[in-house]
Design a protein around this nucleic acid. Structure first.
Lengths: 148, 148
DNA sequence: GTAAAAGTGGGTAAAAGTGGGTAAAGATGT
DNA sequence: ACATCTTTACCCACTTTTACCCACTTTTAC
């Protein structure tokens, strides 16, 4: 399974194409078939999952009972933002307009690898988010990384 | 099995034809034979199932004991709304009048992929439905997207 | 220093979305 | 059963968007 890391500042061209950084390409397995599912991410970003990783989520969704009103609502809410995109020969993707609008991405993009997926951020929003806590990196690391 | 996702705003022409978005076409298997079964959906929408998926539902219906009053009622109720539609050469379907009337669809249509089926919504009704919760996207994603 | 790879940009043909004309098929009334 | 009206299927046409190809500049690797 792919594991993405790193953070880059790239640019989106006039046609809405964004390059996937070479470092991250190498984490994508051939099973992904040059395809990502992009969807609305958390905290205002766009998330992209390689096809093979997304399939696991789909299997999870398929098991939900749609005759339960809450499940139905959740599914609709999640899937309305999800779309498949394929890479062109230069390893670029065309991000859907509604997602670009949601994320406020326009010219420059921060591309970040976050484990099982890649995130696209509007650069300022990214900085704000990263600045948005009083806790130090050390404090947070202590909480998250602690292995009892 | 097909897995539909994505949400698009399309228009229905004066003849009542609605295009199936290209992204969703790709999820349809050849076994569906360019045919969908459309039926009354939940929460005021119209649902369309590819033929091969609908067959599975039919098998389920066949197993129901018709001498049980509740089963009988359910069967009559769902089947009265169900109808097969075939795609024309431009991948459009003609939705039955009674379903359009039921869903209040007139000019513009929201087309949403929800796993095993496609949904058609009157745009305003769709927005209302989607707005109907206090929970944030992040809350919902936490419940649904997390795959342990 | 040089060659290869990575990042960026643009032209063009194909596909997608939308609309309409017309003839066949089906329904309706006498 | 027939004429009439309505509905549907099958064309064709136009505009916008997308996919594919080629090209150039910058960075990286050896």
């Amino acid at each position: 399974m792919a594991f993405f890391k790193g953070k880059e500042l790239y640019s989106m061209d006039s046609k809405g194409r964004v390059n996937i950084p070479a470092k991250m390409r190498k984490s994508v397995s051939p099973e992904a078939n040059d395809t990502f599912t992009v969807t609305r991410g958390l905290d205002g970003c766009i998330e992209a999952y390689p096809l093979d990783t997304w399939r696991i989520k789909e299997e999870h969704f398929e098991k939900l009972n749609q005759y339960n009103a809450q499940n139905r609502f959740f599914l609709r809410k999640i899937l309305m933002w999800s779309e498949e995109v394929t890479l062109d020969s230069q390893w670029r993707v065309m991000l859907p307009k509604k997602l670009l609008e949601f994320a406020g991405i326009d010219g420059k993009v921060v591309i970040a690898g976050v484990g099982d997926h890649i995130e696209f951020w509007e650069p300022e929003k990214y900085e704000e988010y990263m600045a948005g806590t009083e806790e130090t990196y050390e404090d947070i690391a202590a909480k998250v990384m602690y292995v009892g």
